[in-house]
Design a protein around this nucleic acid. Structure first.
Lengths: 329, 329
DNA sequence: CTCCATAATGTTTGCGCAAACATTATGGAC
DNA sequence: GTCCATAATGTTTGCGCAAACATTATGGAG
């Protein structure tokens, strides 16, 4: 492995001069600088962030943990945003997958500067470790009581409210809601928004309007459709907790000869990339996923640089995007 | 930051004894070991892989570069496989995104032990750097002339052949093919399989049977449908270069009142998770994506351990999965 | 009770880098 | 030419760890 000393030898200087050239610190004569740069080029030298990290106690790397399924627009947008934030500040991402808990070990060993989690609750054990090791941490799309963890999420309550109110304004009264995965905080907040909207318009939420879904997937949406099709009366509208579920539902209903939006209105959530490119363009709630990813990375890096952010919870605004899948009953 | 010496002080031993306990090397009296372990627990000590790496010249980390869109089953399966291989050998993944070239710098700086690329061609500059730095590297789903890079991919030629022959056997003669992104090696190989099958059955491949697609997406499939619907005669079958394209095509054709498989047969590629869960379950070619991811990680780690794999190119078998979207014309 | 093999523990060293401090050039004022 | 401020470069040190080597216990054979 080529190190500073090898470069120094070739350039006929001391290794600290090489260090100065690389970090642009201190004074180096132009001709010396050039000699050093040439030597670096010739040897293909790359400064080792390991040695540097040993000094500075920072390796410019953020640990990220992924759980669950990645194969949807949501995760793609989120990762894109996070990566953009990291790149801006020259940070790298150290990635692990897996649903087991107690997975913080590799991050601590590699001395990452911070941790970023999303779509997951932190176990109390994890929180304990994070606090004990005093490592900056942000959590996206969930909440957590610990003061050391910053939480960023969008205003799902408002989103659920807007979606439901939109349907009410169109004249719907029998509005169903796919009640999302129970372990998902966003889903719970959307549900709350739905309830609030219904109640504020004096609409009763009968039990048969609440359709449980186990996860955010097309299959779950199709399952809901099968369930609905067995009834003698359909709701006139369904507020789906995610676009994927709406797609599955819409698809399965169409097979059964039920038209959207003529027979039933459907509204999704996330405004994912494909909403506009399907049979019936889906009314949805815009969820600033990429922005939250970006802001999450930036917040974390602020933490790392000891600039504690002003607020520990940051809520991002959402917006209703009306397309073709909703109409008056 | 807590280090070995802190633990040693608390346990009233020398720090090398701590090292021995951690690495299970050499002899340590049971009572001493316990004292050390207690001290580790009490201080929340995590051995730093940085210091270790400085010695051993290995940080147990693999660099991975992602380009393009992640939001499909393919990438999910691949990542799952790669992560599984890494976890087995206690390696971590250092991740970067982005389509720019010349992005190897952060990997070299962080002294990753190896590199893994997929769905991308390596530029000659990248190959030069990889060879110069003598860093183990595997490439998934593409090929590269460099001897230092191992390539793993599935037998796309066979896949294209099987798909096309299946349609021919059903009695189709006017079989179209969506000619995949031109910069994608798999797509080129599938195209070749298609051509071979057509020719070996003495079927001519008219120009209007080749439908270019810019990328693997549902929109691209819908675009193909729009193009086809303007013609006075449809092909009797389409071999799509990916499931996503098949989904988009099928969806758009259905809107236009064209039935699958009665009016037109459609076959996809990848056998992605959703193939079985759509309106018309899609005949597809099983692509051992997860397996290749896993094998890729394992091959790379073999390289790293200086056990050069026997072959530099490894080709994985594929399989035709017949469902409902194909039938006799 | 001595001896000594081996178990148990300790000391020194160097990995690549940069901070802190130390030294040597350079060139302008007089 | 002399002086000296400052530019330019060099030396020492320590970050956390483990290999290599060094030392000190321990306990069983005789």
């Amino acid at each position: 492995m080529v190190n500073q000393s090898d470069v120094a030898r070739l350039a006929n200087v001391s290794f600290i001069t090489v260090s100065r050239v690389i970090n642009n610190k201190g004074n180096v004569k132009e001709v010396t600088r050039k000699r050093v740069l040439d030597a670096i080029e010739e040897l293909g030298y790359h400064p080792s962030s390991l040695g540097r990290a040993l000094n500075s106690n920072s390796i410019n790397t953020i640990g990220m943990h992924l759980r669950g399924n990645l194969s949807n627009d949501f995760v793609h947008s989120l990762l894109t945003g996070i990566e953009a934030g990291c790149k801006q500040h020259n940070y790298s991402l150290l990635l692990h997958f897996g649903d087991e808990s107690n997975t913080l070990q590799p991050y601590f060993e590699r001395k990452v500067d911070g941790l970023i989690f999303f779509l997951t609750e932190l176990t109390t054990e994890e929180i304990r470790l994070i606090e004990k090791n005093d490592i900056p941490c942000v959590l996206l799309w969930d909440q957590c009581e610990s003061k050391v963890v910053s939480c960023l999420f969008s205003d799902d309550v408002k989103g659920g409210f807007l979606a439901t109110e939109h349907l009410i304004t169109l004249g719907h009264t029998r509005i169903a809601h796919t009640v999302g995965p129970t372990d998902n905080a966003s889903a719970r907040r959307r549900h709350q928004g739905y309830i609030t909207a219904m109640q504020s318009h004096k609409l009763t939420v009968a039990d048969d309007l609440l359709l449980p879904v186990p996860h955010f997937s097309q299959e779950a949406g199709r399952q809901v459709a099968r369930e609905l099709l067995q009834r003698h009366q359909l709701p006139s509208a369904v507020f789906c907790v995610s676009d994927l579920i709406a797609f599955g539902l819409m698809d399965a209903l169409r097979e059964a000869g039920i038209r959207v939006p003529e027979d039933i209105s459907i509204i999704g959530y996330d405004n994912s990339h494909t909403t506009a490119h399907v049979y019936c363009p889906l009314t949805s709630v815009y969820n600033p996923v990429k922005e939250i990813g970006h802001a999450g990375a930036e917040t974390l890096i602020q933490h790392i640089h000891n600039e504690p952010p002003t607020e520990s919870n940051r809520i991002f605004d959402v917006e209703l995007i009306v397309r073709k899948s909703t109409a008056s009953p």
